[in-house]
Every structure is written in C-alpha cells, then in structure tokens.
Computed example of a mutant assay.
Amino acid sequence: MLWLLKSRERKAVFAMMKEAKRRGVEIDELENVMTPEEFAALLPPEKPKFKGKIPDVTRWDLPADGEVSAKEYWTDEEVLAVQESTARGEWEGAAALLASTWGDWDRRDLVTGVLGEAAAKDDEWLRAWRKARPGDAGVALVNAESLVHVAWEVRSGLRAEHVSEEQFAAFFRVLEQAEDAVREASELAPEDPTPWVSALAIAMGRQYENDRYLKVWEELTERDPQHRGAHGRALQYWCAKWFGSNEKMWEFAETAASKSPKLAPLLLVAAHEADLQGAPAWRDPRVTGALDGILAWLDGEGRDHSSTRSDRSYAAKALVENGRFDEAVEQFRHLGTRADGGMWSYYGDPRSEFLATRYAACFGATRP
C-alpha cells in the first residue's frame, strides 16, 4: 500500500504513474522507454548520505549548500566563445581555436570534444567549414569526433537489453562511418594523436577484443605516450564492467602512473571503479602511496590542466576515505560551487554526493 512507503518513495511512485499515463504505457514498461537520466529525474532528490550532525561548511570558507550546482561549467573563455559562435552557425572561431592547440595534445583533445559535441547537435557550421576548406585536417578531426557523439546518441543510455535491434544497427553503422572519418583525419595529420582518441571510443563501441584494441592503443601512444584523455578512456576499457578486470585495470593504472605525475590520478579513478564493483580500495597502498604526489601535481604543474577539476574531486574523496580531512577541505575550496566532476555523477545525484563528501570532510577537519 502506498501509505506504507516512505515519503520519498510515495512521491516517486506517483511521479512514475503520472509519466506512464502521459506516455501511454504501463508503469513497469517505463524503464524500457526512458533513458536512465530521464528515469532518475522522476525521483525526488535524496538528502545527502551523511550520518551525523551536518556542519556549517561556511565556517571553513566554503560556499553554502544552496550555491552548489552539478551543471556543466566552463571557465575557459576561448571554449565559451566557440560554443557561442558555432551556435550561431560560424566556423572560423572553431577552426582558429583548434589550430592553436597543435602540439598541446591534451588541450587539443578537450577542444575537439567540445566541437564534436556541438557538431553532433547541429553540423551546419561544420559543413560550411568543410566546404570552405576541403582537405582541412581540423574539420576532418571534428567530423570524426562528432560521429562518435552521434553514434552514442543513437544507441541511447539504456542498458543493452533495452536497446532495440534498429538502434544497435544504426549505432554500429554510424561507428563505421566514424572509423572512416578517423582514418581521413589521421591521414591528413599523421603526427596528431587526437584522431586515435576518437578511435578508442569507437573500439569500445564496436566491442574490440583486447588484442585488436591494443593495436589502436599503440597508434595513439606512438604519437603521445602520456596523453591524458586517451589514458582516461583506456582505463574504462580495462575495467571489469567493459572488457577487462580489476586486475587489468589496476595494472593499467599503475603503468600509467609510472609514466608521468599527470597520469597518477588514474589510480584514484581505479580505486573508485573498484569501489563501485564492491571491492573497497580507497585505502589500498597504491592509492595512499600516490596521494601526496597527486596533490603536489594538482597544486603545481597540473593546476591549470583540463583534468584538474575532475582530479580534485577524486582527490577529495580519497582524502576523506583516508581520514585526511583538512586536506580534503582544501580540495573543496578549489572546487568551490562546482559539483560537475565526473566522479559525483556515478551515484545518480551528483550534487548530493558532493555535499555528503564535503560534510564528511568538514565534520572531521580541524575547527576553523
């Protein structure tokens, strides 16, 4: 009976009943016709999962709870400018920004991702760019990444059993087109590792077995052995939930961390993935032994890296789990009001997870 359910559960049931009626389906069919994001949006927000007296975080010079947002946030003025110009159908700013990233492969990957996502939504400006500059390596690169975005949009975020045969057929068809686009981009700029980052996403979508995936990986690392975005994508491939295992994931993360300080945060990502699989790893020696070096990199050379905000989220979580609360509070000072780091979204309600972890940091920290 509904009256036996808790208040949040009652509200969720009523919301699902209303949505099912609106869509003309039975309530137990909703999961088949809605994405996980749409389904989660029906649920009233949970209170943060924090047991104990909630501290007043402003006493640690942190922004109040009401100011925190999980909305994607950009501080990069150049990225913001091209997002606005492509929305107006203009390509010149995008071309100039992408050209300026040559040699800074991590930034080139970031800009390519932004432009690829924009083109997946509306490619009028991309087609105008290609017409004005046929054979341009930059436009070929953005085209490849946009097709990757389109493919995953076609597939949807539903679990495989809820994706139709037609969707899967279209998904694989677009990925084949993306492979051709990657080949074109790589031939036009053979030194550029960025097309091979897109190729890694295609390899996951087309379910490459390990040996075939490693051939793509070799192409990437020949061009940039320390590419951060590529290592982030590859770590997901080697996770147990995709085509690897916990052992392969950890091996990959440890090898990456030995290459460069900017790759060491992958150990925190690995700990998080292991934790999600029910194998708590935040206090694993591989994590605790790397934390000081990761913090030094975040406050030094990595301060302005494109991955820093995401890395600080993982670092804050790791510090809380290891009882280093004052240092965790410092990471939250850097994060400010931004709960859009990828780690928080794994729990369904990124803002609540962010707040709960921040409460724990303040609760255990030295009094201000």
Rank of each mutant, 00 (worst) to 15 (best):
A328W: 03
E179N: 06
R23N: 08
W250E: 10
R8C: 05
D292E: 13
R333N: 08
K71C: 09
Y314V: 00
E46C: 05
L126Q: 03
W129Y: 12
E92V: 11
A170I: 03
E78F: 08
D192S: 01
D326M: 12
L298Y: 06
A178S: 13
E187V: 11
D56S: 08
L175V: 14
E187T: 11
R283C: 10
S310I: 10
E179D: 12
P63E: 09
E219G: 08
R108S: 10
G52A: 11
R228E: 05
V182Y: 00
Y314G: 10
A281Q: 00
T288H: 11
Y213C: 12
P265S: 14
P265I: 13
R303Q: 11
K241C: 13
R206N: 12
D122T: 00
E273D: 10
L62E: 11
T112Q: 14
M249H: 00
G93A: 15
G205T: 00
Q277A: 13
A96H: 03
K121I: 03
A240R: 13
E37V: 12
A365E: 02
W238D: 08
S245A: 00
R10L: 05
K51S: 13
E222V: 02
T255V: 09
E9I: 01
Y314C: 04
A365F: 11
L110Y: 03
W129G: 14
V329F: 08
A151C: 10
S310P: 02
E78W: 02
A140L: 15
V79R: 06
A356K: 11
E37C: 02
A15D: 01
L98M: 12
E77I: 06
S307Q: 13
A128G: 15
A70V: 04
L2T: 11
G342V: 09
G157E: 09
L62G: 03
W297G: 00
R212E: 15
L298W: 07
E179Y: 07
A365Q: 01
D349C: 00
H231L: 05
V25S: 10
G135T: 12
W105R: 06
F14R: 12
Q167K: 07
D61F: 03
W242Y: 13
V216T: 11
G300C: 14
V148F: 03
N143Q: 15
A365W: 09
G113N: 10
R351E: 05
A290V: 13
G289R: 03
V68I: 15
V142W: 04
K215I: 07
L319Y: 05
F354K: 03
Y314R: 08
L42S: 09
W60C: 08
A274S: 15
A339D: 08
L188G: 02
K71L: 04
D340A: 01
A365D: 10
G289Y: 07
D192Y: 03
V182F: 08
H149W: 11
R88M: 00
L158R: 15
F14A: 14
L2D: 00
F243T: 08
K248T: 10
G66M: 09
E330A: 07
A256Y: 01
R8A: 15
M204I: 13
M1E: 10
